[in-house]
Structures are given as structure tokens and as C-alpha cells.
Design a protein around this nucleic acid. Sequence first.
DNA 1: ATCTTCTTGTGCTACCTTTCACAAGCGAGA
DNA 2: TCTCGCTTGTGAAAGGTAGCACAAGAAGAT
Lengths: 215, 215
Amino acid sequence: MARKISDSTVRRLSRYLRRLRNLDRQEVKVVSSRELAESTGTTAAQVRKDLSHFGSFGKRGHGYAVPELRVRLEEILGLTRRWRVAVLGVGKIGSALLGYGFFAQRGFDVVAAFDSDRTKIGWELSGVRVQPLSELEPTFVDREISIAIIATPVEAAQEVATRAVRAGARAILNFAPIKLHLSPDVAVREMDVTLELEGLCYMVTAAGSAAEDIE
Amino acid sequence: MARKISDSTVRRLSRYLRRLRNLDRQEVKVVSSRELAESTGTTAAQVRKDLSHFGSFGKRGHGYAVPELRVRLEEILGLTRRWRVAVLGVGKIGSALLGYGFFAQRGFDVVAAFDSDRTKIGWELSGVRVQPLSELEPTFVDREISIAIIATPVEAAQEVATRAVRAGARAILNFAPIKLHLSPDVAVREMDVTLELEGLCYMVTAAGSAAEDIE
DNA sequence: ATCTTCTTGTGCTACCTTTCACAAGCGAGA
DNA sequence: TCTCGCTTGTGAAAGGTAGCACAAGAAGAT
């Protein structure tokens, strides 16, 4: 499995898994690449190629066994263990994330939250106590936290990210609108609502002006 | 400008714009493709290629004029007008979005919010009154809402999305973990925290097992 | 006015991702 | 047991995206 898997493939695998979990809950036993493609927005050939990078899980003429494929995907994505997560910054986004009950269901345990605002320190949100940022390093080490979610204002993002990585974080989910500069062996994903909205505006605008071209 | 611009290019343009707005605020007058690349996580050649799809905005030997390029990018992305947005579902994510003050700064006016929960109807969050879902259609038409942000539970997402589109929405930002089936001329972007976290887990796990391979 | 230095804009190339198309293989039914 | 219908797995082709390398051109120094 030395093969290098592209980011877009990993995203699709995660979508397949999302669908498989639903099918499994509905006790559906078998699914074809065509059905899986239909419900995740891709093509049947793409589904089969994606899965084929990791082995042959299907039965010809039949399809894929739902529970088996689900487990295989969870293994591939590294979701057979639990992951300990910290939320850095307890503003609007940070608190919404702390209250998001599905994390635990999906194997993610939020075990720490930090903020620089003194008035917030000591608060307990969804069972997690808000700690001062000065306790970041010892807490990351003690609780073996490997994922940091950055939900601070943009000015603080780079600094807390650097500190989290030095304290042992191996992955960063960044909600701050800034490109973080970190060692290349740290996994980083960015989530920016404004950026997505701007992308939508381009699509709507471009579609409109393309229509004018036709007239 | 009949050229078809890829999604990844649009994402990068948005990042360039984000950086240019910062530089403009700091009164920086000129920026090179190299600097822009450095601060947005790409390469200088990529920056120049991306911009060249829309014309030549730079001066050779000098760089790009920050305010001019900023305006050009805003024009390209369709951000010289204001956009009216509705939030569908006022749970944790929905309320966090309503409280997110930067939307207005960026040209997005949240002019409506809906929920099916009777106890929430009539609430006023950040100046927006929560309405029952039954008022969705007339409100979209009256207020000329073109973007719908879906923040409902997953079970309701497809239905409210379909209704929003029928009522005039041309773009959907979907926070529900489901692939929406809509007419292909509707622009859709998906934001799913769990999906991003799973992607990070794969990267961390794959990096670990690749290291074992080397040993 | 000329030279030097710097950065853009772009054709070409290399790489990567997706799609196509079909042989291989499995199960059901006669 | 044999045949038929269906779906997988995959090599090959197509399509798209990113990087390289350099000519063109602008600004400032001499």
C-alpha cells in the first residue's frame, strides 16, 4: 500500500463511507458501484477505481457487501481507533463545534478547549472545561491530543497552530481565513465559509454571463 | 471570457483576493506573483497562469498593483454587488453563522432565517427574525434571495434545498452531510466538518504507515 | 541613451485524474 | 451442468492541471 492516494480520492472515500453507514443502519446488505456513485455524486467507474487502489472488495455480478466495505473503508481512513481533539478558540464557531454531538459517534473525542479570554476560562461546554492558552502544551502532551481545531481570530491562528504542532498535534483543521505555514508532515485542512460563498458567487455570475454569450 | 475556469482555480482566486484585501488594508501598493504564491500556498507560475485567464493585470519587472488587482478579482468573482442570503435551520451551526459579523463586510447580507421548531420562531438573532418554514417561498421571492445556506438536520436538507431552488435560489451552501440532488444549473458547495476530519485521519495514518515501509 | 535587473505572460512539457470499454467472474434459473 | 444476465476490476485513452523556462518588457541606475 505504498501507493500515493490523491486528496480528491480520499474525499470520495469519506463520502462512500458516509453513505455506507446509512445503508448499514437501514440494514441494506449489498450495494453496487452504480448506486454508490449515484448517492455520492460521482460515476460508477470512479467508485470502482477508487476502491481498487486498496484491493478487490466486491463480487462480480453482485456488488459490494455493505458492512464489510464499511469496515474496510474505516480501516483505510484510519477510523478504527479513537482520535483525541482539542478546540482552540471558544468563540461562535468553537462553541458550536463543542456542542456538535456527532463527533463522539464518529470516533472523535473533544478532550480540551482553550481561549485567551479570561471571562471564558473555567466555563464548561458540553462537558469540556475551557482552559487558558498557557496550559496548551502540557495538556496536549498529557492527553495525547493529535488533532487541533483552530477557531481563533485570524491574528492568533498561526501562533496557536505552531504551538499545537510543537506540543504534538499531527493534524490541523483550520477555520481561520489564513494559510498556515507549518512543517510539511503536518496534515492541514482549511474550512472558510466566506471562501465557499465567493466560489458560489463566481459560479452564479459566470453562468449568467455565459447565457448572455449564447443570445 | 467564454473560457471555462476550473473549481480549483476559482478557489485560488478567492485566496488571492483574501490576501490582497489584507495587503490593501496595510497600504501595501505592489505585490509580486512570488509573494502572493508564498502567502496563499501555491507557486508563482500558478498565480500568473490563473490571472492570465482573465487578462494581463501586472507590470513586468514590477508586480501587480494591489488595489487594482483587488478590484479586478472582485469583478471576476462577481463580488461588486451585494448578495442576499438566507439561513435554513437555526441550530448550532445556523446560529453561529447568523452571529458571524464578517458576512456583511464581505458583501453578503443575511436577510432571513427559518426553522421548523415552533419555540424558535420569532427569535431575533443578530437582527434577523426566525420565520417558520412555511414562509420560505414568499420570503425568497419578496427579498430576492439568491443564496441559501442549509444548516438543518440531514433528514430535512434535501427538501428545503429543493424548495429554496424552486423559490429562486441559485446557489446552495450545504452543511448537511448528504449529497443534494438539484438541477445542474444550481451552484452547490458542501461543508462537512466530519469529512474534513476523516481526511486528516487518513493523512496522519498513511504518513505513519509509509514511515514503517521505509524502516 | 544605454545597460542592468527584475518580473510578467505564455508556449511547451510532464504529470495526474477521470472516463471508456471489455474480459473475467459470480449467481440464478432451467 | 450449462447458459444468461449482471457487475466488478483494470489496461488504455482522453482530458485536464500544474510546472518549467524563457522571451518580452518595464523601471531605475550610470
